[in-house]
Design a protein around this nucleic acid. Sequence first.
DNA 1: CTCCTACTTGAAGCGCGGTTCAAGTCAAGG
DNA 2: CCTTGACTTGAACCGCGCTTCAAGTAGGAG
Lengths: 132, 132
Amino acid sequence: MDETLLDIGEVARQSGLAPSALRFYERKGLIEAVGRNGLRRTYLPATLERLALVTCARDAGFTLAEIAAFLRAGPSDAVLREGMAAKERAVDERIAQLTRLRDSLRHAVVCDHDPLVECPAFKQAIRRVSVP
Amino acid sequence: MDETLLDIGEVARQSGLAPSALRFYERKGLIEAVGRNGLRRTYLPATLERLALVTCARDAGFTLAEIAAFLRAGPSDAVLREGMAAKERAVDERIAQLTRLRDSLRHAVVCDHDPLVECPAFKQAIRRVSVP
DNA sequence: CTCCTACTTGAAGCGCGGTTCAAGTCAAGG
DNA sequence: CCTTGACTTGAACCGCGCTTCAAGTAGGAG
């Protein structure tokens, strides 16, 4: 066996993901095992990088299906870059929305109104969050 | 019947939420009907404001359970404001994370590397997203 | 050789945030 | 009166992102 191959337990430990999650990702087409050691899946070390990418994208709110599509976009980078540009715009919008929300919360924390829900500034701020 | 009361269909139309969602929210303790017109729930107009608040918080990534807890915190504003301050910090962190992600995507779109996944700057950027 | 351990599988289950369904009920209109 | 149409209910179902379970199996230790 190639010494550089990692079995599923090793990948689980190093990636911080559960083995069940790794198998789940495989079913979803996010990663692939290169072979087996007995029944145990073995992975290329590069899989760890791929998992970092997956985790990052997932944390960012991408669905696993979206991520799989990205990864499958394959070496034809044009599609990939186009998708990424679209996602950049989406993330930008999300940041703007969360920023408005944070500003509303910031006001809420220092606002004198009681009950807070009746504060005109708060009400207006809340409305701005979803409808900029 | 008080002319100012709205029945569920009216609230659904004005809030943009499905009647099923309104009933679901009621089970979760997010809203309350003040009475019935026949079988139809009737709501105070203030319910629309409350729903705007709920929608906003939900869009911001709060769970319905969290929102319900917030709303139940009741007139004792101290708890509410404390919770909001905590959420402001959480939202701020999320904004920072998304900002790092957007920067990675921004680089990815203009990066010359092929395959992109091998670009050192991209790899480093990806790592920074989840582990600032 | 046997035994232990760490994996393997498919299937079922969970929490979230709802929607959809079948069957029933009410108010208003003709 | 009876019909129509918008609601009512509880229960089932959905997609997501997994975890958990029971039953089975391979590799290595003794």
